[in-house]
Design a protein around this nucleic acid. Structure first.
Lengths: 133, 133
DNA sequence: GCTTGATGATTACACCTGTAGTCATGGCGA
DNA sequence: TCGCCATGACTACAGGTGTAATCATCAAGC
């Protein structure tokens, strides 16, 4: 595999954890939000307090995953890494770990374990057609 | 998706960590091995000591992921959860977290990010044909 | 000016994880 | 028989993670 894995995903080196990921999703959906705004989106769903969100935001800024743009007394947070990059990285990690790096094996597994609905199959087929075209 | 996600993976409730997973792989490959034997397979690759492997084995037994069958003074360890179940669970977790539960989205992402080689595509196509047949 | 509320920074803390050392015990060779 | 080695159990400990309280500070209102 020769996975050097030293490439910066658009500036972020450190690993984004699960809780942090929830915060990222909110900001990917709509960038430039304050801590309070982010909290409005996730605190209820995850049972968090505003303090928790602030901690996560800080850690994400530290990790270089978020930019904190000063706006008066507070900050507007914006993702520095693209969702694409993150999703891609995580997917690759899974494929490497569990399927020996073969994405096709993943698909095969999903198919065989019936994780794919008829609609999924159709969608994938269409996608493949497009790709091979 | 209505993911109740309470389904037992053949008896294992707790989450298997990364280091533990490496041990599981060895035992999935060949069950009923002693700690020393497992170590022969992973210690070199991961730079572990035998002690580390023993700890991981213990934790896995605790978690219900391994059975420890007494064999004289030592134990022979054997997976209690099928690799299929583990891989399936992990895959589903990823799909749920990053692709809103849509496996097709995952495939689409892999395809678009060029994580799929021409061979992969061919393989998947063949697979689909088989499934739809 | 002084209080108050909003807000980021700092600190806290328990649990998990990776990694390993030490201990107790029992079989086996000398 | 006696000490040694193999082996699992127990203990350890640093760093990461989830979750949050507290602190310092500043803007705005009284």
């Amino acid at each position: 595999m020769s996975a050097s894995e030293e490439s910066p995903h658009s500036g972020a080196g450190e690993r984004i954890t699960d809780a942090e990921h929830a915060v990222m999703e909110v900001l990917w959906d709509r960038p430039r939000q304050t801590a309070a705004e982010v909290c409005e989106d996730v605190c209820a769903a995850r049972g968090w307090s505003l303090a928790t969100v602030k901690t996560l935001l800080s850690r994400l800024v530290q990790k270089g995953a978020l930019a904190a743009e000063p706006d008066g007394r507070r900050f507007l947070y914006t993702p520095l890494i693209a969702r694409e990059a993150y999703v891609g990285g995580e997917s690759r990690r899974l494929v490497d770990r569990l399927f020996g790096g073969s994405a096709a094996s993943l698909v095969a597994h999903l198919a065989e374990s019936e994780a794919l609905t008829e609609d999924d199959l159709a969608e994938i087929e269409a996608l493949l057609k497009e790709l091979r075209a």
